[in-house]
């Protein structure tokens, strides 16, 4: 559905020295630098897949989304969305595509959302029966039935984002770009939007690209991720692979029963299971190889006065950060 081959994008950005002198100088002579926003990026997204696009600020995520939605042109490389070049601004493609930018309003602020939806119904030529059905489904799933007649600018940030999602998905797009859809939202709103996106994906199976700085969004919604750093793809694979590849160990947390153990005995035994990362106030943390987690747990239960035990996977955010920093060092 989405195919990206060797896409690069350079921007010419003006720079100015700070202070009044710099401002006066820039009136007569302006200096520019070339910023390489994307460097030979390759990726593909299948029907029904949600691809997570991760990277720090300025990594090129939004630039890629803008290129794929036809907003900006690539400097080189090629892309096909539903078999069509996105820069051709083909109406057939545009009527099957949706873009949601968390930091940019798409609906009209001065009017209630329903007014914007009526215009979108005509723009996308949505038949009345489909329009009614979709409004009902989307409003119900997002819980904004009562907000649709209120002027958009008077809605809360969370409500506005939900309304933006409704506006973007009203025409059942086959390709959806979500650029930080949960930015600035509280935890409840973030959760509601994640639930909705999963339900939507199940129902309509669009190809989705999601960019987000919230790892919860990525973990809950994406099976596959692309990690970008300074315009290049540094990882392209499944989320589970990130864990097995970059976190070959897990942490076993053992809560010991009170006063039934000695520090030396427990430490000596724990060292046989793996590496002790901490041992304080009766809580022992042991780092063990993923393949030996079950065996180590069994041994711990048999040989230590265990009150409670749990297994901790490495934090996905830390792993992503590790990957992002890897090539930098």
């Amino acid at each position: 559905m989405i195919e990206v081959k060797e896409i690069s994008k350079e921007f010419k950005v003006s720079v100015k020295e700070p202070g009044l002198k710099g401002s006066i100088k820039s009136l007569f002579k302006r200096e520019y630098i070339i910023k390489h926003a994307l460097k030979k990026v390759n990726l593909h997204v299948k029907e029904g897949e949600i691809l997570g696009l991760i990277g720090s600020n300025g990594a090129g995520k939004t630039t890629l989304v803008k290129i794929l939605s036809g907003i900006i042109h690539a400097s080189s490389g090629s892309a096909k969305v539903l078999g069509i070049d996105p820069w051709s601004r083909d109406n057939n493609l545009r009527s099957q595509m949706a873009l949601i930018m968390g930091q940019k309003a798409q609906v009209w602020w001065d009017l209630p959302a329903l007014d914007s939806f009526l215009l979108l119904q005509e723009i996308y030529q949505i038949p009345q029966s489909v329009y009614k059905k979709n409004i009902a489904f989307l409003a119900d799933s997002l819980g904004v039935k009562d907000q649709l007649k209120t002027q958009v600018r008077k809605l809360s940030l969370g409500e506005r984002m939900k309304v933006e999602l409704m506006a973007a998905l009203l025409h059942n797009p086959k390709v959806v770009y979500l650029d930080e859809p949960t930015i600035g939202l509280d935890l409840t709103a973030q959760k509601a939007i994640r639930h909705f996106l999963l339900a939507y994906q199940k129902e309509f199976k669009p190809a989705m690209i999601l960019t987000s700085h919230y790892m919860d969004d990525i973990e809950k919604l994406c099976k596959r991720i692309v990690i970008m750093r300074e315009g290049s793809v540094v990882y392209n694979g499944s989320l589970s692979e990130v864990r097995s590849q970059y976190a070959p160990e897990k942490i076993i947390n053992v809560n010991l029963k009170q006063d039934e153990w000695s520090f030396e005995d427990v430490s000596t035994f724990a060292k046989k299971l793996g590496t002790i990362t901490s041992f304080e106030e009766g809580v022992l943390r042991i780092k063990v190889n993923r393949d030996e987690v079950a065996k180590s747990c069994q041994l711990a239960l048999e040989n230590l006065p265990v009150q409670d035990l749990n297994i901790e996977s490495a934090d996905i955010g830390d792993l992503v950060e590790k990957i992002m920093l890897k090539g930098k060092q």
Partner: peptide, 12 residues
């Protein structure tokens, strides 16, 4: 301010 984006993605 980049609000032209929405008009670019509309099929009109």
């Amino acid at each position: 301010d980049g609000t032209l984006n929405r008009f670019i993605v509309y099929p009109v």
